[in-house]
Design a protein around this nucleic acid. Structure first.
Lengths: 203, 203
DNA sequence: GCGTCAAGACGAACGACGTTCGTCAGGAAA
DNA sequence: TTTCCTGACGAACGTCGTTCGTCTTGACGC
């Protein structure tokens, strides 16, 4: 069963989640699709196992009340990078139940960090929910934008000129096209996480 | 072509996005699947048209500098409710390019609201991105959790007892199970949007 | 050493999906 | 009336997840 998960992760890492089919995993294992069902009940089940494996990789730091912001940010970043290593897999992560044990482990760790930071329990609980959901969505968006075979992965320049050619019913978009298209690497990610942590800290 | 979009939206509203297939739309139109391709180039294209139609429904308020928070919240809520009317459709929304004209219209409107509220352009631009991404992800999660597929839609009570039976390696989760499982209706949504707006306002 | 039998592996097939192709109908143009 | 073009559509292809019945294999009792 671990072999199936290993093979599936390899496929996702190299060809993206869209290429993850039972048949593809089977051929990677040099067998037929039917054989997989001895180790995995479903494709949904396989998806959940993948997410579990992935979540198990993130390291949870020992809570330090003076560094809770950095620590939470670190966990979010770890999670994001795990998702990005397996492009598109966050689609499965969004579909899988958050009562999954490995997912809960991360939630537990993040909860401990926020509580150590002095955040009220209710605020912390909802904050974790928001953060994990955002990380998930961010990873999915990045994967979708930079993935598909074609070339609709527009460069920033093309995006800028497209915004410039918009009708005049889009005044703000045209004026602030530079701001809207800025944000290389994961600047937007860092920005949003910091935004949420700010909000949490003030409550 | 509008007829195709209408039929597709009906299908999604009544049976969920998972049931949206070319064949299903075709039978709703009392024809065969091949006929749809005269009006729609792709299923992806159909998805994009659906999102466009949906986005066109949200009303953008005239910016009022004294009420920007309420106005932004209102737009987010409208968008959320549109998504929830068509369960699961946010999956398509996440996949579709954000350069879609109808999507841009909403971004333009939200940008105007934030700018009127005195938010710095760069902050506003990224803030919009975060907000729309979160709204999308939230709607998708809600749709997935309240799926028709059987009874893994656990009640809060069941969730509570499940948390209580967790091993002792989950101390915080067990202690704060009440907080973690609370949040009826869209309390969590309101919480998170307010969280982000707080952060935006302080920058 | 031999026979038995459970458990895993697998070929073949099913139904559903998105999509394409060749044909066909029906009205506009000549 | 004849021609031609543009939509509509039946049939089919290739791929997907999944199932079923058969086969292989290796441990165990005698």
């Amino acid at each position: 069963m671990d072999a199936v998960v290993d093979a599936a992760l390899d496929v996702v890492a190299q060809e993206g989640y869209g290429a993850l089919t039972m048949r593809r995993v089977a051929t990677a294992l040099e067998t037929g699709p039917a054989s997989l069902y001895a180790h995995v009940v479903n494709k949904d089940d396989l998806d959940e196992l993948l997410i579990g494996r992935l979540c198990a990789e993130v390291e949870l730091p020992e809570p330090d009340p003076d560094a809770w912001r950095e620590q939470i940010t670190d966990v979010c970043t770890q999670l994001r990078d795990q998702y990005l290593r397996y492009p598109g897999i966050s689609r499965a992560a969004l579909a899988t139940a958050p009562t999954n044990e490995d997912t809960l482990r991360i939630a537990e760790g993040m909860l401990a960090l926020l509580l150590a930071g002095g955040i009220a329990p209710q605020t912390a609980a909802w904050g974790i929910d928001s953060l994990m959901l955002y990380v998930n969505a961010y990873a999915l968006e990045v994967a979708l934008v930079s993935r598909p075979g074609g070339e609709w992965v527009v460069s920033r320049d093309e995006l800028l000129s497209r915004f410039a050619n918009l009708p005049d019913t889009f005044p703000q978009t045209k004026r602030y096209a530079a701001e809207l298209t800025s944000g290389a690497d994961h600047e937007r990610f860092d920005f949003t996480v910091a935004l949420m942590l700010d909000g949490l800290a003030r409550r």
